[in-house]
Write a protein that binds this DNA or RNA. Structure first.
Length: 358
RNA sequence: GGGUAGAUGGCGGAGUGGUCAAUCGCAGCAGACUGUAAAUCUGCCUCCUUCGGGAUACGGGGGUUCAAAUCCCUCUCUACCCA
């Protein structure tokens, strides 16, 4: 199969792929200390250009020793460029060939994010991997918008590459094109000659049906250089990850384990568990019996149910911890399975578990 | 014993003649969440429903009115004040 196991070396350490990267947008993986994040096996986490330049400011972080020191995460960090905010904050920005002009969601002040500015901010943050600024269009974007986004993302990648000067920071390019394989190919073919050290697929999980993404992934992943890391941005659920690994993807990030954790949804081998549901009120069992995370070793579903019911902050913390432990273990086991030549079997077994009813 | 103010859906609490099955909050039940404007959001929450509606309802009983949670009489109960 296309599934691959690899090593990704950065200035702050080596990452075993395939890997899931917890999202720490605002210089924190919400609800968890870096020690807890490390404790569940995280090797690399995300930070965000748009959010950190608005608050507390990328120059402040630079002056305090960079993002690693600032947040006490001495391991690899990847920063997103703000390209996703082009999508998620679409109502608060205008986009031109020059860059994206945001009205800050915090106070309404204007922030112009050009490719050059996105590079400078990420260099100030000092992340190990920086992403080029891209335009992430929604799944239902008309073809004119999609083509324009591709054209713009290619030019912006060029400008990001030209402006980049950080000696130990790698810069990854992003392929757009939605579900259209021809557009994806066109975008990839323009970016690959620029010789970035890594390539990402952006513009997935932006409103399309999951099955449509699954169907497009093998061909899209195959467009990316096989000798460089491949990163599927913003994806996804456990089943999405395994399908993408099978397609040859190496890196993932997603808010799902942490956001869902805060919202009382736990991922398990038998599918997602809504811990707020009344059926857990008196359940002495752990969230997941075969999980060795701190949450599952020590606390019952009944206790978690109570914590969420009482709006205690420990609930979100414990479930975020469990969910990250679950995602990280899923990727570790996937890696072992790949190395041992039994990935297909591993994927099938996981999918069978998720499909079962608890 | 006298006086005053009250009694509304699980709770709190609006409404004071028709647009009221009744604002809103809480509690309860369920659903959603994918490069984080999210410890958030949505729906349901009297009973029945083919989801279009239908049937009973604002302490009990009686009355006025085309029409009452809203006005009148009466009973019961509650809180506070005076004896």
């Amino acid at each position: 199969g296309a599934a691959r196991a690899g090593l990704l070396t950065t200035a702050h350490g080596t990452v075993e792929t395939p890997i899931f990267m917890p999202v720490g947008t605002q210089a924190t993986v919400k609800g968890l200390t870096p020690e807890m994040v490390r404790g569940v096996g995280a090797q690399i986490i995300l930070g965000n250009t748009y959010h950190l330049t608005l608050r507390p400011g990328d120059e402040l972080i630079r002056d305090l020793g960079g993002l690693h020191a600032f947040m006490n995460w001495p391991h690899p960090i990847l920063t997103d460029s703000g390209g996703f905010q082009v999508f998620s904050l679409a109502q608060k920005r205008k986009i031109t060939d020059h860059g994206a002009i945001f009205k800050s969601h915090l106070d309404g002040r204007e922030l112009e994010l050009t490719p050059e500015k996105a590079v400078e901010i990420q260099q100030n943050l000092g992340s190990d991997i920086a992403m080029v600024l891209d335009e992430c269009p929604p799944a239902d974007a008309p073809s004119g918008v999609m083509r324009n986004a591709i054209r713009r993302s290619i030019h912006w990648a060029e400008r990001c590459k030209a402006h980049h000067s950080h000696p130990t920071q790698a810069q990854f390019a992003i392929v757009q094109g939605g579900l259209n394989i021809d557009l994806r190919a066109e975008c990839a073919e323009a970016l690959i000659p620029m010789d970035f050290p890594g390539y990402a697929l952006g513009g997935f999980s932006v409103g399309e049906a999951p099955e449509a993404m699954h169907a497009a992934l093998p061909a899209c992943a195959a467009l990316l250089p096989s000798n460089k890391p491949r990163y599927l941005m913003g994806v996804g659920r456990p089943q999405d990850l395994l399908i993408a690994v099978a397609a040859g993807i190496d890196m993932f990030d997603c808010v799902m384990p942490t956001r869902s954790g805060r919202n009382a949804l736990a991922f398990t081998d038998t599918g997602p568990v809504k811990i707020r549901n009344a059926k857990h009120k008196r359940d002495p069992a752990p969230v997941m019996s075969d999980c060795d995370c701190q949450c599952c070793r020590n606390y019952s579903r009944a206790y978690l149910h109570h914590l969420f019911n009482a709006e205690e902050m420990l609930g979100p913390t414990l479930l975020s911890l469990h969910n990250l432990a679950y995602y990280l273990r899923l990727m570790r086991e996937a890696r072992s399975a790949i190395v041992e030549g039994r990935y297909g079997e591993y994927q099938l077994r996981c999918e069978a578990g998720w499909a079962s009813v608890e």
